[in-house]
């Protein structure tokens, strides 16, 4: 059973050999797929939508109303980031169904995504509260609680990354164990739980927590 992602090929760069894992290859595949989807879906928008444009508009408006209900009015600027995150995570979590290894079953991917959210959260806090208010925020309610506040800020992205990683990897390992016991018939319905249900739920939770963190940084 493979716990670490396989190295697909080795890329020589400046005399070093950089191993390129399955995660990177699948991530680039997903990125290419999403870019092609974006190009095809956004190629010719019309005043009266038809066909694919309807579906894309439903997706966008659903996301926008979710953002408004979670973060309040005036949060439309986050739709592109949250939308990209949602689409990437949705495809990445479900790609296990196509026999690929999900990129989110690698801690590097989830830590990178959580890192982007962390930077966004801190930037948003800095922008909304100003540099003085931002620094003062760490010393509230009492000055000696500053270390606790800093740890609390760092724990957010770490738990965000580990939650997604643990859920997807755990599902993958359980499915591998089931396949090694009964390879036929039984695993099929279990894919619905471990891949489809858990994948969609974790996507939703990741974007919900991102929105909550950003919204709580602003006030």
């Amino acid at each position: 059973m493979e716990f670490f992602p396989k190295v697909v090929f080795v890329f020589p760069l400046f005399g070093m050999n950089i191993p390129v894992t399955e995660t990177v290859v699948v991530t680039w595949g997903i990125m290419a797929g999403l870019m092609i989807f974006g190009y095809v879906a956004g190629r010719n928008f019309e005043k009266i939508p038809r066909g694919l444009q309807n579906a894309v508009e439903i997706l966008y408006e659903g996301l926008e109303s979710l953002l408004k209900s979670t973060m309040g009015e005036g949060s439309e600027g986050f739709v592109p980031y949250i939308g990209t995150l949602a689409m990437f995570l949705f495809v990445a979590n479900l790609i296990g169904l196509l026999t690929f290894r999900p990129p989110t079953a690698d801690l590097s991917t989830t830590l990178a995504l959580a890192g982007i959210t962390f930077v966004l959260t801190q930037y948003e806090g800095l922008k909304r509260k100003g540099i003085v208010g931002y620094i003062r925020g760490f010393f509230e309610p009492l000055p000696f609680m500053a270390p606790l506040n800093i740890i609390g800020q760092i724990a957010n992205p770490v738990s965000l990354a580990f939650r997604l990683f643990g859920n997807i990897l755990g599902g993958m390992i359980i499915m591998n164990l089931i396949y090694s016991v009964v390879p036929v018939l039984i695993p099929a319905p279990l894919h619905f739980y471990f891949d489809v249900f858990a994948g969609i739920l974790q996507t939703f939770i990741f974007i919900m927590l991102t929105m909550t963190f950003v919204a709580s940084a602003a006030d």
């Binding site: 738990s159 580990f162 643990g166 859920n167």
Partner: peptide, 8 residues
């Protein structure tokens, strides 16, 4: 989160 840390 705590359950995930146990799993990790």
């Amino acid at each position: 989160t705590s359950a995930i840390y146990c799993l990790i």
